[in-house]
Amino acid sequence: MTPLLVVLGAVLGGPARLWTTALLDRPPTRGWPRGTLAVNVAGSGLLGLFSALALADAAAALLGVGFCGTFTTYSAFAVQTHRLGRRGVAYAVTTLTTCIVAATIGAVAGGALT
């Protein structure tokens, strides 16, 4: 059952990331990959929220591992950081800081709800 829920979440999360990045990272993209930044921050906030809500195993597999895990991506972030060269340092620091802050806000919100 768990693998099916992971797949279901991923089937929604993958295309949601593709569409968001296509919308926000319109070529020619000379600046930061804003789409990747947006999905990573939003997904980190959601996972922080879901973790604090202490979801049942099935819901955690669907929403956490499946959706949030697939909606966000590290590999694109790493390759884009490399491509940005020197400017990649600021992009990487901003991404990581913002994602951890988003996860914290999500966790605090989830804590308040439970």
Partner: peptide, 27 residues
């Protein structure tokens, strides 16, 4: 290119777990 890049590897890697695990360790 899309199936293997944003698909398989985008789905395999994850920023949300990285951020959430870092947040939990800091907390």
């Amino acid at each position: 290119a899309t199936a293997l890049g944003p698909g398989v590897l985008g789905g395999f890697t994850t920023m949300s777990a990285c951020a959430e695990q870092a947040r939990a360790l800091i907390a």
